[in-house]
Nucleic acid binder design. Structure first.
Lengths: 122, 122
DNA sequence: CTGAATCCTTTACGATACTG
DNA sequence: CAGTATCGTAAAGGATTCAG
């Protein structure tokens, strides 16, 4: 499916680069992966993704919204209630992300070893 | 395979986070993906990945080497010749990366639209 | 050809305080 | 509850020069 693996250029206008611009930062994959199990609220993300700050969470969600990956639904009540879920495009997009997560869980032993070793290097 | 998708935490010691620490930067995916089609030399990367600087290329390759993902072979000749290829672990690791690339090529139209739209936003 | 070394800019990210 | 605004630091990345 990838045209001529032997000769393609992986530059700025290549699909892979654009894909990485969309999902290749620190928090987007966890956020999307969490959404793959259904609609989530703001606090759900904060609880399930330890370490993410409000700033980064909001920034990530808004960017994904403007990219057409997630829907944001505001309920005009107090206290506020806001729900996030995947758009149809988002549902497709999380497939390769889920693939990454799957692989990570299956190979967590080796990943852990590498992780620990790299940490010491600093 | 992923344990209880409904309740896992995606924090610092979760496999997905460690996976992203390993492959989740700007140049690692293209570099690995290129290596999936066989042994490459330093200049091969420079030609096939437009935009990458020598600094980042070297840094990425050395990190992957120390992580046990790629082998680096130096031929003691002049001019120098250095070859890079995937270790057995690297061969496994590129599977989900290839999945990402596959998806990107299959959905390149939508990705392109998003990419162009986001660019204008700035 | 394959880097190393340096300097510099930009971006990402985190911490904190405040708000309807 | 779900943010916004601001500030500051740290990390990432790029450009350039030099070298075996």
């Amino acid at each position: 499916m990838v045209p001529n693996n032997k000769q393609i250029l992986l530059g700025a206008n290549c699909p892979m680069r654009q894909m990485l611009d969309l999902v290749g930062d620190k928090w987007t994959p966890p956020v999307l992966y969490l959404l793959s199990s259904g609609t989530k609220r703001y606090t759900d993300f904060q609880r399930r993704i330890p370490g993410i700050s409000k700033k980064m969470l909001t920034q990530t969600l808004r960017r994904l919204e403007s990219a057409g990956v997630v829907n944001r639904t505001v309920y005009p009540i107090v206290p506020p209630k806001v729900e996030y879920n995947l758009t149809p495009f988002g549902e497709k997009l999380i497939e390769p992300i889920a693939g990454l997560a799957e692989w990570a869980w299956q190979n967590q032993e080796e990943l852990k070893l590498i992780y620990e070793r790299q940490k010491l290097k600093v």
